[in-house]
Design a protein around this nucleic acid. Sequence first.
RNA 1: GGGCGGAUAGCUCAGCGGUAGAGCAUCGCCCUUACAAGGCGAGGGUCGCAGGUUCGAAACCUGCUCCGCCCACCA
Length: 1065
Amino acid sequence: MSNEAPTENRTEPQRKGTAGTDGGGGALPPAYDHRDVEARWYRTWKERGYFHADERDHARPPFSIVLPPPNVTGSLHLGHALTATLQDVLTRWKRMSGFEALWLPGTDHAGIATQMIVEKELLKTEKKSRHDLGRAEFLKRVWSWKEKYGSRIGEQHEALGASLDWERERFTMDEGLSRAVREVFVRLHEEGLVYRAERLINWCPRCHTALSDLEVTYEEGHRGELWSFAYPLAGAIDGGPREIVVATTRPETMLGDTAVAVHPDDERYRALVGKKVVHPLADRELPVIADAILVDPKFGTGAVKVTPAHDFNDFEVGKRHGLEMLTVIDPDGKMNASAGPVAGLDRFEARKKVKELLAAKGLDRGSQPHLLPLGKCQRCETVLEPLLSRQWFVRIEPLARPAVEAVEQGKTRFIPEQWTNTYMAWMRNIHDWCISRQLWWGHQIPAWYCPDGHVTVARTAPPTCGTCGKGDLRQDEDVLDTWFSSALWPFSTMGWPEDTETLRTFYPTSVMETGHDIIFFWVARMMMMGIHFMGEVPFRVVYLHPMVRDEKGQKMSKTKGNVIDPLVITEQYGADALRFTLAALTAQGRDIKLAKERIEGYRAFANKLWNATRFALMNLVDVTYGQEDPGALARSPADRWILARLQRAVRSTVEALEGYRFNDAASTVYQFVWHELCDWYIELSKEALYGDEPASKREAQAVLTHCLETSLRLLHPFMPFITEELWQTLQAQVGARWGESIMLAGYPKPGTPDEVAERSFGPVIGIVDALRNIRGEMNIPFKVVLRDVQVGGLSEEALATLRSETARVVRLANVEGFTLSGTPTRKVPGSAVAVGSGFEVRVPLTGVVDMAAENARIEKELARLDGDLAGLSKKLSNPSFVERAPKEVVEKDRARAEELREKRVRLLAHRDMLVEAASADGVASSSSAPSPPTATPTATEPPTSSAKGGQRGTSPRATDPATNVKVQAKPAAKRKQSRGAGRDPAKKKQSRSAGARPPPRGRQKITAQAANKATKTKPAKKAVARKSLTRIPPKRTSSRKSSPRKTALKKPAAKKRAPKGRSKG
RNA sequence: GGGCGGAUAGCUCAGCGGUAGAGCAUCGCCCUUACAAGGCGAGGGUCGCAGGUUCGAAACCUGCUCCGCCCACCA
């Protein structure tokens, strides 16, 4: 993993003033300030060309990602920050792992969005419309706007630490990409896949342009009305019907009606089919037609007005029946001259007017409220109007089919997988794509018209008409849908249509990382275009990240004003903290609700890392750390343990990254660094580091350095800045030559964790936890040294470790060992005890604390134990379980039950000693313990609850033998009941209070136990478990998807028991 | 009208067939010579509801209720 440092004269960035005032050699200030670090390192990396990927380097396997191009005129929001973070994590990780990693940046011209921004600005500053300026002049303005603001995106990415290959930055309207766009358009046209036709399209009366189906946002549940009116029958027959009633949500369109449709099987209207109705507001008659597709006889009156030019369904009907397509609404959303009495009115005004006019003629047939979806412009939210218009389309089916097949064949994989269905469903039911837009900003369609109206499609302006040879050609004024050029992004940015080395090396890209909101807009279209023009899918994996929402779960949007600027966060907490937060929150399948507290937490993590390194620096004075293998050097249990844990962390992290489980990767590193390296190892290492035993010291120094250095590399993709800073500092301090940048260092490789080391250190951790718990619960200040501590169940080695390395952690003195199965070497009445699986600790507390407190503590412990034991016993006594459950499971439970029983025996023995001691000394209980009875020989059994006046009276002695039996009996006590018992508002009180159950007077022992049990129930495990987590290294950390190995580990020490020695045992 | 996702500790979320977890917040004790952006300890959960499958369900199945999103041409 170590890379040599090729250049000795590294141009290391100047570090800000170093305050080396602290005792050690540490040159770091006591708190991490990202502002000192981030910009400096980014500049350095960029200058040194670390971000650049070499397409000619075939020694390293290629890895490539193209950045989803943000809108040029835009500004990054948190969604972009998320994208940038995840892609940078992948890129840096792969780059460190030996790949030639390309991350290609660029921006999108964003047709409508950009044009609108500039138009708005123009109106504001100069009170002019784009038409006042003219096309050429307006475009000039847009370009200058782009020049002015387009760099903002880049700066924001830099602030985030994105290792983008800036040398390859592209813009969808730059010359190269424009050429690719024309090439694609022309080729598709030649293949008959691009055509021009008059169709009904979605039209935005405000943006004044056609839109694709996708750009329509349907707003659900719009409250409208379904208004009915009558069409009088022409030449009504005597005695027959005189009219046909139809319903509509858009009365104004009736002026464009050219038929009335009924269902062919509808008896009510059968006789009327083929007849005519009279249009009440226009001088014409409409045929009554029969159409089984359009009409649902059960809806409304069963008769439908047909407006082919303003409704998608009706348009189809019109085609089927050869109806006239009468347009009555103009592109501004106003009624046109064909609208007769309402001509010139806005469409919504016309709606009212039409109703009035028809009502005046006695044709109003009432209305009813109606919920309907309203199609609005994605961009300006104006209600769209279906209009008949001549536009350019892409015939999509031939392109979609291969794109579907590619996914079916696994050439491209979606993560999370569920999106595959979404993609497939859309692709299989796709409509032709309207690609022309009546805008100015964009790729002007490469089609030219001669005076006779012939169309010539060409890559460059043709001198003469391709059909008739005439000159004086005029280019199509429309531009292409922005997504048209976006669809080419993976290959147009790499030089297509040229056959470039870059394309050969980096296409297909490795991963497309983007939001699921643009699967259709972008991902699907890239798939189609990529396959069609490159003959290969554009990416092997599509990773769809979650949406970032505000802390209330709302989508961030400018209109809601809840958009968070990543730069603000970055300045406040640091890019590393933001990045780590985003990665840690990125789980598959759930949106991200970002709360500031979370970011603060990870900023603290950065600070923790900073200080851990600072600690190391202070203790690595006069040390050179070469190439020794710390694994070979490490002899002490703690050293071997942390190295094993490191291995495991590396492995989990890499596995998580490989599975795109960013949250798992982040939390694994977090857990290791903070709770294992810092909380445990650094504390343990102090003994050796501060001591004067050279070999131990050297060993600890090497191990500490190794763990830190590896952690920094492990963490680098997530927190690039601070890791570089610390890595460099550490490197300089120990005089190593790891390399010129952590960016170029190798990513840690998963090794095989030393399970023996993990296992053998487990009891030590368990004992320390137990001792801390005793201190905590009994309020023994850290200053007070625990003397004459007896420890049972530890090997000599472990005992030595406890004596030497943990003395400072829990402050012990005179630790003695004893054989667990035997009698304590020295009986210490009045001591606190902690019983764990495979170990036991006794801490003499006479004179230190009130023994009543200890008694209470033990009772609590016992109760928990009983609860657990009861559950287990019940399970094990169930014949079906024993017979049908897998043998391993049964065995496991048996072993556990055995352990618990053993613990129980020992705990009871301890309690008895307490009782003896109490009776002997006549200890006065006063302080903490709620149950004075402790002191009383007889009343040993203050069932925790105490205050409540629980029952007591178990005879300590009797317990032993009874123990096991008892346990069995326990089940009787219902946990639920016990729970219900507590009526105290305070929850904790509740669970504790034994009172609820009526004590069976008869048998005292049972009673006591029942009480215990009641007390116990749930709280028991909780507490226990919790501890185990943090503390117990073996189990917790590995947690998640750990490898099979893990399981193996747990059995011995670790797992549940180790943690809190005492509580759960 | 279809489809998808979510519902687990006060908050934000992991877990997804074998004894309920993290971070933050809360409470208590500590300025223990890397870190108070800290250390140690503790408390806190009928895993949305109802059925079912199973020796065993937070996890699998069915139904339901709430949130959120996507798709859809019922006038």
